[in-house]
Simulated assay, not measured.
Amino acid sequence: MTAGDGTSLTPAAVAARSNRMRSLGLAAMIAAVAALCVMSLAIGTRDVAWSDILAALHGQVDSIGQAAVAMRIPRTALALVAGAALGLAGAVMQGVTRNPLADPGILGVNMGASLAVVIAVAWFNITSAYAYIWVAVLGAACSAVFVYTIGSHGRGGATPLKLALAGAATSIAFASLVIAVVLPRNDIAGGIRAWQVGGVGGATFERISHVLPFLLVGFAISLLSARRLNSLALGDDLAAGLGERVAVARAVAALGAVLLCGATTAICGPIGFVGLVVPHVCRLFIGIDHRWLLPFSALGGACLLLAGDVLGRIVARPAELDVGIVTALVGAPFFIWIVRRQRVRDL
């Protein structure tokens, strides 16, 4: 590679320049998240002035505008952490499975968590917030293992295409089971249906505090798995030759993704396509190094969910469109584009 003046650059100089560009990109992503947080506080059924935002951030609720901002603060915080969790989980799942179509929704993980929560509510009458989270995480884990087991059968093992097909079939089956469980229970049907759409409305700091420990553990495990995911990207044989315990590396990284997916689904409902769209877009700009891809995906997921929530408030005024619907409208065409872009034999 040559510099602008025609002189050649050493590999170390190239790496340093690339890292500087990535650092600038990371700073830009952080600034974008901050800007979207401000927009989330300012935009809604009622637009508010800067003075109301600043007053509400200081705890004042003396006017209607300040009260509106006070209600949007936990909603913004939930969209921030949930988007980051889903974006990071998607990047980890794509790294674990080496599957460009991997996504908590497409692989059936979100719907597994959803089915577990619905069964727990309908059949066991759970009411504890922590019980919801544990049940959702267990359901997500069982679904992930089930899909991977089904996708591993047959010639070639767990290929990306077979995993995607197994996940799609599992999601459809679990969605049908959710309907079957809810239909006889009119007393919970309304709340379950609203939760299944996926959204961040009605968030409170109390609810966020219940799920935050699970998310923090998931974030830590996932981010610390970056080096292992880089090894897995080289192939199982080469990763094992480099001293990596492939099965352990894959299981630990998957655990982080399952924690993120299960906890997010418990509080927001099953929100799809964030984990598919965000890692792909980030990979186009910063490459495949998971040490950079994972934090970029977390910030990108936060941006997408914050922007989707703001857009949902604008397009249906004075009503609101849940962010799960907005991400589906964005993600479905993106999924079709990825499938058309990739050759089936290369998936």
Rank of each mutant, 00 (worst) to 15 (best):
G199I: 02
V178N: 10
S63T: 12
L115N: 06
G83P: 06
G157Q: 05
D52T: 09
R193L: 13
G190E: 10
V96D: 00
S222T: 05
L165Y: 12
F296D: 07
G151R: 00
A257V: 15
D52C: 04
R185A: 15
L36A: 08
A253D: 07
S231E: 09
S128E: 10
L305S: 00
C282M: 12
A189I: 00
M71F: 09
W337N: 08
G312V: 05
C282L: 04
G65K: 11
G105S: 14
S152G: 08
A42Y: 08
G87D: 06
H58Q: 12
R155E: 05
S152A: 11
N125L: 12
G262F: 01
A316V: 09
L329H: 13
A136K: 02
G44K: 00
A12P: 08
L299F: 09
V197Q: 03
G262Y: 02
V252R: 03
S171R: 05
G235Y: 12
D187Q: 10
L311S: 11
S51I: 08
V145G: 12
N19V: 11
A56Y: 06
A240T: 09
G90N: 09
A316C: 09
L242G: 07
L232R: 03
A28K: 15
R72K: 08
Q342I: 11
L115Y: 07
V258P: 00
S222W: 00
S8A: 15
A28E: 07
N99D: 06
G218L: 01
I106C: 00
I325E: 12
T204Q: 14
W292Q: 10
D62L: 09
G202Q: 14
L304D: 01
M29Q: 08
W123A: 12
W50P: 11
A70I: 07
P74G: 08
S18T: 11
N125I: 13
R17H: 10
T327C: 13
